[in-house]
């Protein structure tokens, strides 16, 4: 299991990284924390990549509150997201998510931007950003652009980012007073990808529910959200069941995952109401 990389270049800045990508003849691959990419390379699922290592670009790391938004740099590591007081205060869902992401050593290297750009449908962060209504910020040869999270995740491992673009960070609306954010998931073992996971945010304007590990991309459960807003949990569970089309694999069938989505929704709502999960 020895990786076969086509080449490597260390980017000194975002501009430099974009130049490297532009010069890679389509073989460029952005290397951030490497916790998914290097594994894929070792397994020879990805061969001959020209690696653009952005991990040393300090401007892409960090967490800041800017008015009523929380900005998180793409290279901010999971471990930092999990312990940062501003994340705790303004986007507690992300902090809770970190505890479920793999294991300590992975969280020390993995980055939030890497996780979002990788777009693994079983990962926590994509669904979290969907539940929280994040905005993705990308830099490309023609400058920067923002992408609404609803438009960002397209397919398994596929996002709206162009090949010559780099995800530089995300912004999130900071939690309102009284907002509640809850993450529920079931995994076979601690740190495993969830069989199904569910993010629930309750805001003055209503509920937001996003699920992961239920299809090729994270799903915003609009029907369930509307039913919850109407105060009908049973209808929300039914709606949820109808609006996800989960996969079957060696860990669980679609039927199990669909059932579990409903269980997790009930548990999340119970926690909203202060009941023990």
């Amino acid at each position: 299991m020895k990786a076969s990389a086509g080449g490597y270049a260390r980017a000194e800045s975002v501009r430099h990284a974009l130049d490297l990508l532009a010069g890679s003849d389509g073989q460029g691959r952005v290397l951030a924390g490497g916790q998914s990419l290097v594994a894929a390379m070792n397994m020879r699922l990805s061969v001959g990549d020209l690696l653009v290592d952005i991990s040393k670009i300090s401007e892409l790391s960090g967490i800041a509150v800017e008015g009523d938004t929380l900005r998180i740099g793409a290279l901010t590591r999971h471990a930092q997201v999990g312990t940062d007081p501003q994340v705790q205060a303004h986007a507690p869902l992300l902090k809770d998510a970190v505890a479920h992401i793999a294991h300590a050593a992975i969280r020390n290297r993995g980055t939030i931007g890497g996780a979002l750009a990788h777009a693994d449908p079983a990962a926590e962060f994509p669904a979290c950003t969907l539940a929280l209504g994040a905005t993705m910020h990308a830099e490309g040869p023609d400058g920067s652009r923002s992408i609404a999270v609803e438009d960002f995740f397209e397919e398994v491992f596929t996002t709206a980012l162009n090949e010559d673009e780099i995800l530089t960070g995300i912004t999130l609306p900071i939690a309102e007073a009284g907002e509640m954010q809850i993450l529920e998931e079931v995994a076979r073992r601690s740190g495993d990808y969830a069989l199904v996971g569910l993010c629930l945010a309750k805001r003055a304007a209503g509920h937001r529910v996003a699920l992961f590990s239920v299809g090729p991309k994270p799903v915003l459960a609009m029907g369930a959200m509307a039913a919850l807003d109407a105060g009908d949990l049973d209808a929300a569970v039914d709606a949820l069941s109808a609006e996800i089309d989960p996969p079957s694999d060696t860990q669980a069938s679609a039927a199990y995952r669909r059932h579990l989505g409903g269980v997790l929704l009930r548990r999340a709502v119970a926690r909203l109401k202060g009941d023990a999960a």
Binding site: V186, R188, L195, Q251, A252, S253, A255, Y256, H259
Partner: peptide, 15 residues
């Protein structure tokens, strides 16, 4: 005894 097999034994899953 996976979670799924236990729920199937309990009759809780509909395919």
């Amino acid at each position: 005894f996976t979670p799924e097999r236990i729920l199937r034994a309990l009759g809780k899953l509909q395919d």
